[in-house]
Design a protein around this nucleic acid. Structure first.
Length: 511
RNA sequence: GCCGCCAUCGUCUAGGGGCCUAGGACAUCGCCCUUUCAAGGCGAAAACACGGGUUCGAAUCCCGUUGGCGGUACCA
């Protein structure tokens, strides 16, 4: 058995790696999936931890689905999360180009070399013929492997096939000749040794007739030519690895260190999708999650720092990050924990920063104008409002609905709240409150004075605060739950409060 | 079907033969604080998938079973 294909398990910067070079190679065919950004994060952390390079490269050989707009989105999401890259299509680098469709000549040369060595051969089979082979294998219950009929063609047969294809306006594909009796093995950075017998692998296509390379070939050529030292990717790639090892071997190259991390799954244990939770990075931005919270949360999916700390700054995560502490089992994405963590980060923001982050969401809710057009006074007022909700929201998207009653003149009254609290029995209390508050001028409208008046009334009448406060609360906010009453009244302002109190007096329900 | 990977509370995980009557976090429940809602404090409930080995001793090592996931493409 041939076992020389072991890739190094060495730790970086400890034995002989001149430079740590890792990469993330997404295909720009759609929105950025959380799983991809998770993989990107781990690569980024690894590079940053060991002073290596983090490279961004696009695998855009799926011509049908690849689009520049998706490339732009990848840039955007990476920047949003704070994952910066040292080399990439936009910033260039010593191993440019970083887009596979611009590297076709490179693949052609490597393919040509493999052909000269006899490691690949032309295959003229049509999709229909291959399909028939597969069907036959399936029916006879044997494992499907390409028949290799094109490998054994005589010269005249080959000529004929060539003509046939040319007439149809097509060219043959290049197929890899998988050797028999070889053990393809590597010591996975996070799973230990993994082995596969080459006999279980069918001769795979490495290049289409049109010169577009296929994944298992292009990825190897890119990693070789870009001098990638460590490949950290999702466990879905484990089954591709043996084929890639074959290509490295044929090319006489030592494979990079390989590490396969677990996938991120939805709550049903299946791949993340709309059904079991949002799958794309942008979804989480829209829902009001802070990038630093998502960063922290994603880092903890499949990795834990030695001290078990959960709330960690970006710097602390880089500092503590070790591939040795990355787990191998898949992780279910727990939205509730993310929400908790987002709340923690939200609460840690200072007032000014909170306003800055909340503004886009308030705007989207139609409650405030363009950030640039706000007066200092308006900004100040927004600050007071969001301040009241800072420890009451888990995501920024909640800020609009939560604070609506501060911004609108007309508010919506929750029907159940009205039924329960705004009863005729509260009339004397509300009237007394209006009478007391009316005397307060706008300049006296402060938490202390409001507290003095309202508590004064409660004390004089020997009431419980709740009896008086809840009707007021529902009258001015439309609901039974709000920030502390005095604060709410103070921020709401004299005019809105008195107007709503009077309105409520006109609309009390029986009881 | 075949090949491969994975398997500790509902979830994320600690644990790498005795320190485990299995620890932490989220969620849940209870109590405290309290003008409501939060936040915060305290506490409770909750797991080593199953079966064989190895060993004086197994959550930790080995084998099998079961389950989940992935691959089996001229997708990446």
């Amino acid at each position: 058995m041939n076992s020389e294909l072991i890739s190094p398990t060495s730790r970086p910067a400890k034995d002989g790696w001149h430079e740590i070079r890792v990469r993330i190679a997404p295909s720009p065919t759609g929105p950025v999936h959380l799983g991809n950004i998770h993989t990107a994060l781990f690569n980024w952390l690894f590079a940053r931890k060991y002073g290596g390079k983090f490279i961004l490269r696009f695998e855009d050989t799926d011509l049908e689905r690849s689009d520049r707009k998706w490339e732009e989105l990848i840039y955007k999401e990476m920047r949003w999360l704070g994952l910066d890259w040292d080399e990439g299509p936009d910033v260039g680098g010593p191993y440019a180009p970083y887009r596979q469709t611009e590297r076709l000549e490179i693949y052609r040369q490597y393919a040509e070399r493999l052909r000269e060595q006899g490691d690949v051969y032309y295959c003229y089979c049509s999709p229909e013929e291959l399909e028939a082979e597969r069907k036959a294998a399936e029916q006879s219950g044997t494992v499907y492997k390409y028949s290799r009929r094109c490998l054994h063609l005589t010269d005249t047969e080959r000529k004929a096939k060539e003509e046939e294809l040319r007439a149809a306006g097509r060219r043959p594909v290049l197929r890899f000749r998988v050797p028999e009796g070889v053990t393809l093995a590597w010591d996975d950075l996070i799973r230990g040794r993994i082995e596969t017998a080459s006999d279980t692998i069918s001769d795979f296509v490495i290049m289409r007739g049109n010169g577009i390379p296929l994944y298992n070939f292009a990825v190897v050529v890119d990693d070789i030519t870009m001098k990638i030292s460590h490949v950290i990717r999702g466990e879905g790639h484990i089954s591709n690895t043996p084929m890639q090892l074959l290509v490295y071997r044929a090319l006489g190259e030592r494979p990079p260190a390989l590490g396969h991390i677990g996938h991120i799954l939805g709550t049903d244990g299946k791949k993340l999708s709309k059904r079991n939770g949002d799958a794309y990075v942008g979804d989480y931005r829209d829902r009001g999650f802070l990038p630093e919270a998502l960063f922290n949360f994603l880092a903890l999916l499949g990795w834990t720092p030695p001290d078990g700390q959960e709330i960690l700054s970006r710097e602390a995560i880089i500092e503590a990050f070790e591939l040795e502490r990355v787990g191998k089992s898949p992780a279910i994405f727990d939205l509730e924990k993310l929400e908790w963590m987002n709340g923690v980060y939200l609460r840690s923001l200072d007032r000014e920063e909170l306003v800055r982050r909340a503004l886009p969401y308030l705007q989207r809710a139609g409650l405030v104008g363009e950030p640039g057009e706000l007066t200092a006074a308006q900004r100040e007022q927004i600050g007071r409002v969001v301040g009241l909700y800072q420890e009451r929201i888990k995501t920024l998207a909640e800020i609009g609905p939560a604070t609506e009653y501060f911004f609108r003149d007309e508010i919506e009254y929750d029907a159940k709240a009205v039924q329960k609290v705004l009863k005729a029995a509260s009339r004397p209390h509300l009237e007394a409150v209006v009478a007391r508050l009316e005397h307060l001028g706008a300049e006296e409208w402060r938490v202390e004075t409001l507290e003095r008046e309202l508590d004064g009334y409660v004390a004089e009448q020997g009431l419980r605060r709740l009896e008086v406060f809840q009707p007021i609360r529902v009258a001015v906010t439309g609901r039974t739950a709000s920030p502390p009453l005095f604060d709410t009244l103070a921020v709401l302002g004299r005019e809105k409060v008195l107007r709503r109190l009077r309105y409520a007096l006109d609309h009390l329900v029986p009881g």
